[in-house]
C-alpha cells in the first residue's frame, strides 16, 4: 500500500479520527453498519503513517481510534461465543453508533452553514442604538454570572499588565540633535536653547541638545550669544 492516495492539501487535514473515518467510509462507499473492518483499519493506519511521514504530529486521538479499530478487527476474527448472549453482538457496533451520530452532526453543520447568515448573506439594520438618551447607565443590564466573571477577568488582565514590560529610553544621538539644530537654523534666523529644550521629551534629550549646541558652536557652524549673565542662550545662523 502506498501513501499517494492520501495526498491531501493541508487545509484538508482531518480534524480528528472521526473525521478521517467518515472520509474513508465515503471514499469506499460502504455502509456504516456493515464496515469492512480490515480494509478501513488498513487505510486508517496508512493515513497515520502518512501523517508521520509528513511530520504532522499524530494526535493521541488517532492512535486511540487505530487501537479501537484493531481491537474490533481482532474480535471479528474470533468465533462468536454462543454461550454468552452479550457477546453475540457485532463488535463493529462500538464505532457504528458514534459514527452515525457524527455524520448526523456533520450534515447538520453543513445545513447551518448553508443558511442565510446575518452579516454575510443578509443584512439587518445596524444593531447599535441610533439614539443615545444619556441615561443608559440607569438601564437594567442583562448579564449572567458568567458575563460578570468574564468582565472581571478582562479587567484583571488589563490591570495586571505585562510584568516584563520596561520602557527603553529612546536613544537620541548628539549627532542627530546637531543636524536638527542646523536644519532649524536654515529656516529661521535664530532659536533659543529654552525653545529647543521645550521640545525635548526627557532629561536625556535636553542633555543631548545641550551637547549638540556645544558641538556646533565649537565647529563654528552657528553663532551663540548670551545677552545677560545666567540668561537664555540664543543660537543664530552664520
Amino acid at each position: 500500500m502506498t501513501n499517494t492516495g492520501y495526498q491531501v492539501r493541508l487545509e484538508n487535514v482531518f480534524e480528528g479520527p472521526m473525521d478521517l473515518l467518515v472520509h474513508l467510509i465515503k471514499k469506499n462507499q460502504v455502509d456504516i453498519y456493515d464496515i469492512p473492518i480490515a480494509l478501513i483499519t488498513d487505510q486508517f493506519l496508512s493515513y497515520i503513517r502518512w501523517m508521520q511521514d509528513m511530520e504532522i504530529d499524530v494526535a493521541a486521538d488517532f492512535l486511540v481510534m487505530a487501537a479501537t479499530l484493531a481491537q474490533i478487527k481482532s474480535r471479528m476474527l474470533l468465533p462468536a461465543q454462543e454461550s454468552d448472549q452479550e457477546e453475540s453482538e457485532d463488535p463493529r457496533d462500538a464505532i457504528a453508533g458514534p459514527l452515525a451520530e457524527y455524520m448526523r452532526i456533520k450534515s447538520l453543520a453543513g445545513k447551518l452553514a448553508e443558511r442565510n447568515i446575518l452579516g454575510e448573506h443578509v443584512f439587518a439594520r445596524p444593531a447599535e442604538p441610533l439614539v443615545h438618551d444619556g441615561n443608559a447607565e440607569q438601564m437594567p443590564v442583562e448579564a449572567s454570572l458568567y458575563d460578570l466573571l468574564g468582565a472581571y477577568q478582562a479587567l484583571s488582565e488589563q490591570m495586571a499588565g505585562d510584568p516584563d514590560f520596561s520602557i527603553t529610553p529612546e536613544k537620541i544621538s548628539v549627532k542627530e540633535k546637531m543636524t536638527n539644530i542646523l536644519d532649524l537654523l536654515e529656516t529661521q534666523k535664530s532659536v533659543t536653547f529654552s525653545d529647543l529644550a521645550a521640545n525635548c521629551a526627557d532629561k536625556g534629550e535636553i542633555i543631548a541638545t545641550f551637547l549638540a549646541i556645544l558641538e556646533v558652536v565649537r565647529l563654528n557652524l552657528v553663532g551663540i550669544t548670551q545677552e545677560e549673565t545666567a540668561g537664555g542662550l540664543k543660537l543664530f545662523s552664520r
Partner: peptide
C-alpha cells in the same frame, strides 16, 4: 445569525447516509 425562528426551527438531520446512497466521493482530493 442563522436566521432561525427558535430552536424548533433548526434544520432536521438527514437520514444517515450509507455508502451506497452517497454517490459523491469525487470531490475528495487525492
Amino acid at each position: 445569525t442563522f436566521d432561525l425562528k427558535d430552536l424548533k426551527d433548526l434544520p432536521a438531520p438527514d437520514e444517515i447516509q450509507t455508502g451506497e446512497e452517497n454517490p459523491h466521493t469525487g470531490d475528495d482530493p487525492g
